[in-house]
Lab assay of single mutants.
Amino acid sequence: TTVKLGDIKVTFDNPEKAKKYAQKLAKIYQLTVHVHGDTIHVK
């Protein structure tokens, strides 16, 4: 599962960890989390 934020891409083996990371980023940057299959976009 890949978390994308602009040019930053972080890949996790564990989808749950990816989701938590995405939510953490979203909170920090006051953005929202969008899940598209294996990719989680923070924008």
Results as ranks from 00 to 15, higher is better:
residue 27 K to P: 01
residue 3 V to A: 01
residue 7 D to K: 15
residue 25 L to D: 00
residue 40 I to M: 05
residue 43 K to H: 12
residue 16 E to A: 10
residue 31 L to R: 01
residue 20 K to G: 06
residue 4 K to I: 15
residue 43 K to N: 08
residue 25 L to A: 02
residue 8 I to N: 06
residue 30 Q to F: 09
residue 36 H to T: 10
residue 33 V to P: 01
residue 30 Q to A: 09
residue 25 L to H: 01
residue 7 D to W: 15
residue 7 D to P: 13
residue 43 K to T: 14
residue 19 K to C: 15
residue 21 Y to V: 05
residue 2 T to V: 12
residue 24 K to I: 13
residue 43 K to L: 14
residue 12 F to H: 00
residue 5 L to F: 15
residue 19 K to F: 15
residue 39 T to H: 07
residue 31 L to M: 13
residue 28 I to M: 13
residue 36 H to Y: 12
residue 27 K to Q: 13
residue 34 H to S: 10
residue 30 Q to R: 11
residue 31 L to F: 07
residue 35 V to I: 13
residue 18 A to Y: 02
residue 37 G to S: 04
residue 26 A to D: 03
residue 37 G to R: 05
residue 28 I to Q: 11
residue 24 K to H: 14
residue 41 H to A: 05
residue 31 L to Y: 07
residue 13 D to L: 11
residue 40 I to V: 06
residue 23 Q to E: 14
residue 42 V to H: 01
residue 16 E to R: 08
residue 23 Q to K: 10
residue 13 D to V: 09
residue 34 H to T: 11
residue 40 I to Y: 07
residue 29 Y to V: 03
residue 11 T to H: 13
residue 30 Q to P: 03
residue 4 K to N: 06
residue 37 G to P: 03
residue 7 D to N: 15
residue 41 H to N: 06
residue 14 N to Y: 04
residue 13 D to N: 11
residue 31 L to I: 04
residue 6 G to P: 03
residue 7 D to V: 14
residue 27 K to A: 13
residue 10 V to S: 03
residue 43 K to G: 15
residue 41 H to R: 05
residue 8 I to C: 14
residue 2 T to N: 05
residue 16 E to T: 08
residue 14 N to K: 06
residue 23 Q to D: 12
residue 26 A to T: 03
residue 20 K to P: 00
residue 15 P to A: 11
residue 28 I to K: 15
residue 38 D to E: 07
residue 13 D to I: 09
residue 5 L to C: 15
residue 36 H to F: 12
residue 14 N to C: 08
residue 3 V to Q: 02
residue 1 T to W: 14
residue 3 V to R: 01
residue 39 T to A: 05
residue 2 T to W: 07
residue 12 F to G: 00
residue 27 K to M: 12
residue 19 K to L: 15
residue 43 K to R: 13
residue 31 L to V: 05
residue 30 Q to T: 06
residue 5 L to I: 15
residue 2 T to D: 04
residue 36 H to N: 11
residue 4 K to Y: 14
residue 29 Y to D: 02
residue 35 V to E: 08
residue 23 Q to W: 10
residue 34 H to D: 07
residue 35 V to W: 10
residue 11 T to F: 14
residue 22 A to C: 09
residue 38 D to P: 06
residue 34 H to F: 13
residue 26 A to H: 03
residue 24 K to L: 15
residue 24 K to E: 11
residue 4 K to W: 15
residue 42 V to I: 10
residue 5 L to A: 04
residue 13 D to K: 12
residue 23 Q to A: 11
residue 24 K to R: 12
residue 32 T to S: 10
residue 7 D to Q: 14
residue 7 D to F: 15
residue 42 V to N: 02
residue 5 L to R: 04
residue 8 I to G: 03
residue 37 G to D: 06
residue 27 K to F: 12
residue 22 A to Q: 01
residue 41 H to F: 13
residue 42 V to S: 01
residue 10 V to T: 05
residue 16 E to F: 09
residue 8 I to Q: 06
residue 35 V to Q: 09
residue 24 K to M: 14
